[in-house]
Design a protein around this nucleic acid. Structure first.
Lengths: 269, 269
DNA sequence: GAGATCCATGCCCGTAAGGTATCAATCGCC
DNA sequence: GGCGATTGATACCTTACGGGCATGGATCTC
């Protein structure tokens, strides 16, 4: 079974755009090539991944499954290659996962000044599965919002964040100063870590187009502001805890140092 | 960065054989092809993976790193493809990891007779990291020896196993009926889950060639017997616990059913 | 020093990936 | 209902790369 990563990447592009033309554009290849490659890929795999008409491209069940799997495969290949390069060049590296809106810059700056020899990277943590980069050892430590399965992870709480209601600027409640959760009762809420296939951007798109409103952490709201959305404090909504997390079986000195530096940085501010 | 899985497989073959000719033979390609592919692979990666002389092939540090990474990548690609096929065909599958010498056949037979619609697979668990297949979700449940990090796993003890001393047939102690651990004091012991790069076969090779002796679970000794090695009971060595393990966040009905069937099977025997 | 072993190089061929031009089906619109 | 726009598929050509064979060149053995 000689799955080809090139074709897998092609498939991912098509799956994401649901459009052969745009996917081809992104991949810098001609559209007919993409059509043929995808068809060949389906034949190699022995199952149909996409249902195409001239007006739409949709994923089949197998296609959806492959798309999910592909995320992990491509990401782990990329980070494996990076680790090989690191080993080759003899550098140590610390990869920090972060949830959007949490600022890791201070801690990383402090850390790199103490360890100029260690290279650092940051990777975003998917909102629907904050712990994924830690579990797949793509990152060694994470600045995360505490809404994930903590088994096997060591978690250090570092703060709190209020939740705000995110709604279209045209919404009847949008002119208010703040809200209580009771006032949101009648509203359709698009809620959190359940639907695995949608990105934050998609979620905002849904909200902007009037499909509902959402309760999101303040930091997320700040980092994704759009003119057609407003964010209102919800006075009695439970706060979100933010935390540092590391895989419980990691014991490297580098990690301990980072945690120490990070918590020290927090205490100063 | 367009890493090619074919070349990665080629590299793995060479790394395992440390010999281009034999690797090529295993891959059913000509040796010159392999030489060129590996060289091209090194250029794509931008680092040297192998130091070759006409008499030996050795992995560089980067090569060793890549070899480690490759194991995981290739395994996860293979299991991803299988899951895609499963989704396509609409079948459910249960993958059982097992440590060598633990017999899972009864439980699986009982399970499949209760769930003829569910396909089952078994995969070997690496001795130096029994929990790996569960952590990478390559398997949903494992028959393992209880010598791994249990955080995030749900563990059900199912039995005990004595340890035996494994030594060359020519060893001075080899004629004994049994031993006590005190008698092993002077001996060089090759012990357990530390060296991550060696297979069980290599370990036995080391023992056979007189580099030391090892304490291993009886079941392992039984399933890997060689004429040039003998296994002697060590009367006071601590026993190894065997167990069923599942990822703590897995809650599928299928898994519960399997655990139930498996423990019931144990009680009968 | 002769022979064996083993990786590298040179040369050839076939397949498959990529490009351009074009077709065919569907939708929107007047 | 017909026309144009959009979009995926097909046809055909070119190029690049994987693979095979023959052979070179280095190293170890005896």
């Amino acid at each position: 079974m000689d799955l080809d990563l090139r074709k897998l990447r092609y498939f991912v592009a098509v799956a994401e755009h649901q459009h052969f033309g745009r996917a081809a554009e992104e991949l810098y290849i001609a559209q007919p090539v993409l059509s043929r490659q995808i068809r060949a890929f389906e034949q190699e795999l022995g199952c149909i991944l996409l249902v195409r008409t001239t007006r739409s491209v949709e994923l089949t069940a197998a296609g959806k499954q492959l798309y999910e799997e592909a995320q992990g495969i491509l990401a782990s290949v990329a980070s494996a290659v990076r680790r090989v390069h690191d080993t080759d060049r003899g550098v140590q590296r610390l990869v920090v996962a972060f949830s959007p809106g949490l600022h890791v810059a201070d801690a990383i700056r402090a850390f790199t000044s103490r360890h100029p020899d260690v290279e650092t990277d940051v990777v975003p943590a998917p909102w629907w599965q904050q712990d994924a980069p830690l579990r797949t050892s793509r990152a060694q430590v994470g600045y995360l919002r505490r809404q994930f399965n903590e088994t096997g992870l060591h978690v250090i709480p570092i703060g709190h964040e209020p939740r705000v209601a995110c709604m279209p600027a045209a919404h009847p409640l949008a002119c208010r100063q703040d809200l209580t959760s009771a006032e949101l009762d009648g509203q359709r809420l698009l809620d959190s870590p359940k639907r695995r296939t949608s990105s934050l951007e998609e979620k905002f798109e849904l909200i902007a187009s009037g499909h509902g409103i959402a309760l999101i952490p303040l930091g997320v709201a700040r980092s994704y502001s759009r003119p057609d959305l407003v964010h209102l404090p919800v006075t009695d909504a439970p706060e979100v805890e933010t935390c540092l997390a590391v895989a419980a079986d990691r014991r490297e000195k580098l990690l301990r140092d980072f945690l120490q530096t990070a918590t020290a940085t927090l205490r100063q501010t």
